[in-house]
Simulated assay, not measured.
Amino acid sequence: MKSILIALLFAASAVSAQSPSGRTCHEAVPCPLGERSYHVKEPDGWDGVTPLPVLFHFHGWARQGSLIVNHDRISGATRRRNVLLVAPNGLNESWSFRRAGSPDTTFAREVIDDVKARYPVRADQIFVSGYSWGANMAWRFACEDANGIAALLAIAGTLDQDEECTTAPAEVRQVYGLNDQVLPFPMGPNGDQNYPVQIWRNAYKCGAGEALGPWQQVSFLTLERTVWETCATGRVTLDLHPGGHFIPHGWIARQLDELLGLEPSYP
């Protein structure tokens, strides 16, 4: 009787670890990759076979991917837009982004390759994102290995603008709070508020930016958008807000709507 009970418990455990599509690593159950791991969250109502866009998101300092796949401003956006969310786990809950040749760049590429082996993926719709420390790492990845990356979506973090990047994604979208006290806003010379995306404006050989004015996803936060579209290659978008160090409500959702050609919605 005891052996039967153990078998039943084991079977129940295995089922609970499966995703809606039947895959055994999902949400809180990490996907192992060598000595490291990452988390995934499938979109609502996915049929298990239709190829999916991917949002690959680097977590902030002292966090892990298990938080990201349950974060309403991140996974709340992806699961409603038929996007697969991928959240790697940093060693010691951090990322190695300060210098070129980061081992986390190699790890991130390995995760993307592993996801492609596990899931049907839209190879032309892989978006790399990150918040805070994770935004710094997302920049590092885009700077070193942007092959096949459709867009960089960076939140409250950058790299030094004198970095020499060897690669660039097809598009860059950055958001930053002017009153950020954790990773202070990287103001440029003579108060240049467009400085946080200087690397990419130079890489794409962009002309003058166009101020598109204010926009909102929620009534209590207004963002000001500037875009650079007259570029030899690529496109750059910079959203600024008067607040501090946080993921703006609905920002990821709006970027995905625009990138995927969907009607803008919230959440």
Rank of each mutant, 00 (worst) to 15 (best):
T167L: 08
A11I: 11
A168N: 04
G157N: 08
A232N: 13
S37L: 04
S94A: 15
A28W: 12
L33C: 04
S94N: 10
R225S: 14
M137L: 01
I247S: 04
I252Q: 03
A77N: 05
R81V: 09
C31N: 08
V172G: 05
G90N: 10
W215F: 15
V182Q: 09
V40H: 02
F10V: 15
L8I: 14
R63D: 15
T167I: 06
R254E: 08
K116Y: 04
S19L: 09
H71M: 08
Y266E: 06
Q18H: 04
G48L: 09
T50E: 02
A77L: 08
G261T: 04
D113N: 13
S219A: 15
Q181N: 10
I74V: 15
A203Y: 02
G90E: 12
T230E: 15
L55P: 09
T106A: 12
S129V: 02
S219W: 03
R109W: 01
C25T: 12
A138H: 08
L152M: 14
T233P: 01
G243A: 13
S102N: 06
T106H: 07
F246D: 07
T105M: 05
L159I: 14
I126D: 05
L91G: 05
E144A: 13
L221Y: 03
F107V: 03
G157Y: 06
L152R: 05
Q193E: 14
V197Q: 01
I199W: 00
D257T: 00
E35Q: 12
V121S: 05
L67Q: 13
T50I: 05
L9I: 14
P248E: 06
N190S: 12
L85H: 06
A146C: 07
D47F: 06
Q193R: 14
T105P: 03
P196M: 02
G207Y: 09
H57I: 10
L52M: 10
G191Q: 06
G244P: 00
M187T: 14
E42A: 05
G244D: 13
P242K: 02
T230Q: 15
T78Q: 11
D162M: 04
A108G: 11
E224A: 09
W46C: 08
A12S: 13
Q18K: 08
P186M: 06
E42Y: 07
C231Y: 10
E164D: 14
